[in-house]
Nucleic acid binder design. Structure first.
Lengths: 159, 159
DNA sequence: TGGTCATTATTGCGAACACAATCATCTGCA
DNA sequence: TGCAGATGATTGTGTTCGCAATAATGACCA
């Protein structure tokens, strides 16, 4: 076990210095806590963040409806994940499934009036929560830096 | 359904402007893709990111061991989540459980030599992945801004 | 037209993990 | 000393979601 304390560095890897480590770790850890806080703020509305995202996405879609595969792509879910998540929303009556008359393979997820009302109910608490825990803590320069930073990361990932 | 297009704004909520929305959305979406990319880069080592974090945490602990409850706290897991995650690592032989002789309620998670070796094997690919997809895309000012931003968010959450 | 391949959605199965209940042990105080 | 409440770990149960297999349909091309 003594050799376990030998210096692990060796090859070409440049380990993270203090600043790099601080940036990486606070990013990871804070993301988790931030999401938990926002999720908790949504609880009184009876929506999870995942359900909320479905309702927002459908509300922004043409005719408040969307193909399952497009929904899955936007929500970063696999097809099966999208099916399962929609199951809950359908049970709650916030979304209905509708067969497409253009392509008989596709199933459309359609926002109901109840779903619209539920979204309306959850919208203000959600935005206020995002502001309180995140956006309103930052000034315009910080917001710009943040957006630019993650745009870079995203662009690199898309290569 | 016509009334569904009525203006949803009304109360005191300030909705997000373009910059705020861009910062928020790129942050959320990119985090997901970034984690997926890093997780994928770890796959050849046979470790999930979750398992890797356990090994790193234990390797940094005094005598390479830690109480379950402290491990759970650091890894942002519930006690039951920590128990379940450790199960896998124990099955793989990277960690052993040991009863504490100080407090007979506590179970110590102890890194094994095999666990140390596995960590050593995964360390370079992991750090390189974090650099490639994240750290090396940013200059020093951007890293400083990032660390400062999330430190603020974290501090606000801890109130 | 007919056949091959791509696309869309769902289901069975399994992994990860939170919640609540449970049990063992410790701490502090009367 | 003895008991009440706090603390630590685990297990049963349920939820969410990914992977692989399956089935249905569409698109393309010879």
């Amino acid at each position: 076990m003594v050799r376990m304390s030998s210096n692990i560095a060796a090859a070409q890897t440049r380990f993270l210095n203090d600043l790099e480590m601080a940036a990486w770790r606070t990013f990871i850890e804070t993301h988790y806590d931030l999401m938990a806080a926002i999720e908790a703020d949504m609880a009184p509305s009876g929506l999870t963040l995942g359900d909320y995202q479905v309702l927002v996405t459908l509300s922004e879609a043409d005719e408040h409806r969307m193909r399952m595969c497009d929904l899955a792509s936007i929500l970063q879910l696999t097809p099966s994940g999208a099916t399962r998540r929609l199951d809950g929303l359908v049970r709650s009556g916030w979304v209905v499934r509708l067969n497409s008359d253009v392509d008989r393979r596709v199933m459309l997820a359609v926002l109901t009036q109840a779903g619209w009302d539920k979204l309306h109910e959850a919208l203000h608490p959600h935005v206020n929560s995002v502001r309180e825990h995140f956006i309103d803590l930052l000034d315009e320069n910080e917001l710009r830096a943040l957006a630019s930073t993650f745009a870079k990361v995203r662009e690199a990932l898309e290569r």
